[in-house]
Design a protein around this nucleic acid. Structure first.
Lengths: 203, 203
DNA sequence: TTCATTTGTTCTCATAATGTTCTCATTATA
DNA sequence: TATAATGAGAACATTATGAGAACAAATGAA
């Protein structure tokens, strides 16, 4: 745990290390730290560094030259996690149940995933509205029932539910909208561009 | 993983290789590296190169002459960003348009936001389905038209669209489902627990 | 191709630089 | 006075550095 009770010199050392790293991209050596605060002893500089390690501000690669590393200032909860309050329907006020679980969105951020904004109403009955952002994982193949981004005749890209005919010669692209009809293409005309793995909307 | 704990000479070597490649379009030979940092031993130069390989800055084609390659500095896209491909409807295959824009989800992750899983169908016509996860920003007040988490009689929490009566004595909670009816409560019985700011779904 | 040369790689040995751990003395402060 | 913070510097351990030998692989020329 990080302490706030730094002596003046400890604070000076910390500030110096921070600005040094800012400029030089490597940590200073003890000699340089000593000079920076106006002393000559490497041993004393080492003592200050050690105090900052104990206080939780630094980390050292013991023995290595320039082996000081700054620790991030906050515990910083994982950037892709949200506190998850489960079924709030249970009825308690939110303050009472905070900090229980977490929901992790890192699965949205895989190497092969990308986002596109949906145009049109063809998937409204699947809860995908005009203007929503969908997260797609890039793949060249899909399974029946997947919602895919399909490129037709190398021209038109569209988001639809995917179904292959029994012989595999045709591909049916099914909208989730009772006002619209499924479309059938020869398999050669359709290129899968990815499969829907997530959806985002921001109000 | 790339370390930035390089010794002075390691950094000198790296800088030299970078500028050499910039000019000559091939990597320098060990002899040249040695001269550049003022030493005579190819063996020592090799040791520096190896250190940079270990640190993740270089790659070598072992044995090959001038076989050093610079590794690109990781662009490290923000952990909360996704490549955003805009209207893929334009028709190009995905490979052709990768790496253009980014969509940043950091606004989902504010200090006062949390996530809950939706139960029930009361908001389907707003595109919020049973099982979806909604992101809520904690607030005690809401504006007409906001979708809110409301706690009724300190017991039941529900997600509905919010509307206040003209005198402010009553609050109407409106489902987005034509099969269901709005409900009206005295303002004292309703406690706002937060306002909908986002929605996530994972397939 | 064949061969000489260059270049990369792996060693060992020696030295310098840096980090680490001490003790001792001084100063400030409760 | 007692305690903590500070500074100097010695002594030692570890790491970084430099030279160069010996060998293997790659390269370029005949």
């Amino acid at each position: 745990m990080r302490t706030n009770e730094l002596t003046d010199n400890q604070r000076k050392v910390l500030d110096f290390i921070q600005s040094y790293v800012e400029v030089n991209e490597v940590s200073p050596k003890l000699q340089e730290i000593a000079e920076a605060i106006g002393i000559t002893s490497r041993g004393v500089a080492h003592r200050y560094v050690q105090a900052l390690v104990d206080a939780g501000f630094l980390e050292t690669h013991s023995g290595k030259h320039r082996g000081i590393r700054l620790l991030p200032s906050e515990p910083e909860r994982s950037a892709t996690a949200l506190p998850f309050l489960g079924k709030i329907a249970a009825g308690k006020p939110i303050e009472a149940i905070a900090g229980q679980d977490e929901i992790d969105l890192s699965n949205f951020f895989g190497a092969n995933s990308y986002a596109i904004r949906v145009q049109g109403e063809s998937m409204v009955e699947a809860g995908i509205m005009d203007g929503d952002i969908v997260v797609i994982e890039f793949r060249e193949t899909a399974n029946d029932g997947d919602i895919v981004v399909a490129l037709i005749d190398e021209e038109e890209a569209t988001l639809k539910r995917f179904k292959r005919s029994q012989q595999g010669r045709y591909i049916k692209l099914i909208p989730e909208n009772s006002d619209m009809e499924p479309m059938v293409y020869e398999a050669e005309r359709v290129r899968i561009q990815g499969v829907l793995i997530g959806q985002l909307r921001h109000y």
